[in-house]
Design a protein around this nucleic acid. Structure first.
Lengths: 237, 237
DNA sequence: CCAATAGTGTCTATCAGACATTATCTA
DNA sequence: TAGATAATGTCTGATAGACACTATTGG
């Protein structure tokens, strides 16, 4: 049998197979808190529980897993998040009552904005402060996935400026430092933080200022390619 | 409809679905080279090409994706590798001619050993020096997966001793340093490397020695939990 | 002027880089 | 003893931590 004959007769539905979904952990920093986008499930299974935005691959519509993630997030938020990174796959026999299932997951960051009012889906999307997640019962193994995503982001806060993508397009260094402190879980030396930012040369001073406290703070924007920069040494350890 | 009714009527085979595989990138250090375990495919598709050890989930046999990876690797090598880490999922419409497919991937490390002669599979398993991979045509997108796995391991070599799991149970510091140099792609200062190893306190001096050159070198073994240690600062930058 | 936040100067501590030196083996 | 590899001593440089200091606003 040559390859074309093999492909013509091949049907993977003949074999028992897990089913695949894509879930995204989307974070945004707002009002001094890190928020995670969750959806209230309206259907079985795990009905009425909060879950990560996610869904099945649409084979005819989605070119790749990442495209599926982008479609799902755009549907809920109205935009394509500026930072999207592949996390790992979670798969076992029991995580979903429908059967052996695999979810391929992504971590995404974007500026906080109200959830897309354009969405005409029945399911309700809402930003939840990550501090409040412990008290909530989430669908499937989504609590563990969010923990892993947070840990990934926490690591990045130690040696990169990736968390900046969870801020608005223009932000102050104070806001960025607060976000890093929140992730790392301890206060950082202002001087150390600013030295790193300056040395890395990843931000543009927009020339604008913003009144947060008393003295106006300079507003910065992110340079292109900032996501690729890693510091040689960790901060806050 | 309540949940049990919903589950009773649910059949995911009714919907078009990608199929899922698991692939593992297994590395071992041997004769001053990093080797990757590959399998010569005997069946369609990609017949006669070299591929990563991998396969379908066996839903009734495998409790999880990781269990699938362990089963596959044990089948090829005879053992469960001491280091196994989840890499990302790769999925799109074109990577496999059989249709929209997803592979969930793992990076694994173990001591070099001849491939399991007990394996009665027709497919041939072989260690390939990673330097030689560039000239080979690999199946599917496995070349890209190996690149990502190598990049992950290279990062770990900068701030951890994870590569140690690609060495035998007893090894010299010279061997460990050579492996790190191979991964990082540049020579390291012996003193810097040894300082880190000592400070991290992740190795046991077995008291034994091994003649590599002239003066016998002390043989070390890895302490339990060494995989969890990260240095605060990178080496070799 | 005071209070509060933004931003800087500067000293210290830690650890990697560099490279010379000593130690221990075989031939 | 010579030669080679293993292991150490020690100086320098880079950068994070600590903390005091100055700058700029509103009231």
């Amino acid at each position: 049998m040559d390859e074309s004959e093999y492909l013509a007769q091949y049907d993977h539905h003949k074999y028992p197979q897990p089913f695949v979904t894509v879930d995204a952990v989307l974070f945004a920093f707002h009002e001094k808190a890190l928020n995670c986008l969750l959806i209230k499930r309206t259907n079985h299974p795990e009905q009425n529980k909060w879950a990560l935005p996610g869904g099945f691959v649409h084979p005819t519509e989605d070119a790749s897993l990442e495209a599926t993630a982008v479609r799902i997030l755009k549907d809920k938020t109205g935009i394509r998040p500026p930072y999207l990174e592949s996390l790992k796959a979670y798969g076992n026999a029991t995580r979903d009552k429908r059967g052996w299932s695999v979810t391929t997951t992504y971590v995404a960051l974007m500026a906080y904005r109200e959830c897309a009012p354009t969405s005409n889906r029945v399911s309700e999307a809402q930003w939840i402060n990550v501090e409040e997640l412990d008290g909530m019962e989430l669908a499937f193994d989504h609590a563990a996935i969010i923990r892993d995503a947070l840990e990934r982001l926490r690591q990045k806060a130690l040696y990169s400026l990736i968390p900046v993508y969870a801020l608005p397009a223009k932000f102050t260094l104070g806001e960025l430092q607060h976000l890093h402190e929140l992730l790392i879980g301890k206060p950082l030396q202002k001087k150390s933080f600013r030295r790193r930012v300056e040395q890395a040369d990843l931000l543009n001073d927009t020339g604008e200022t913003k009144i947060v406290g008393k003295r106006p703070a300079a507003l910065y924007s992110v340079k292109k390619g900032a996501a690729d920069y890693n510091f040689v040494r960790n901060i806050g350890m």
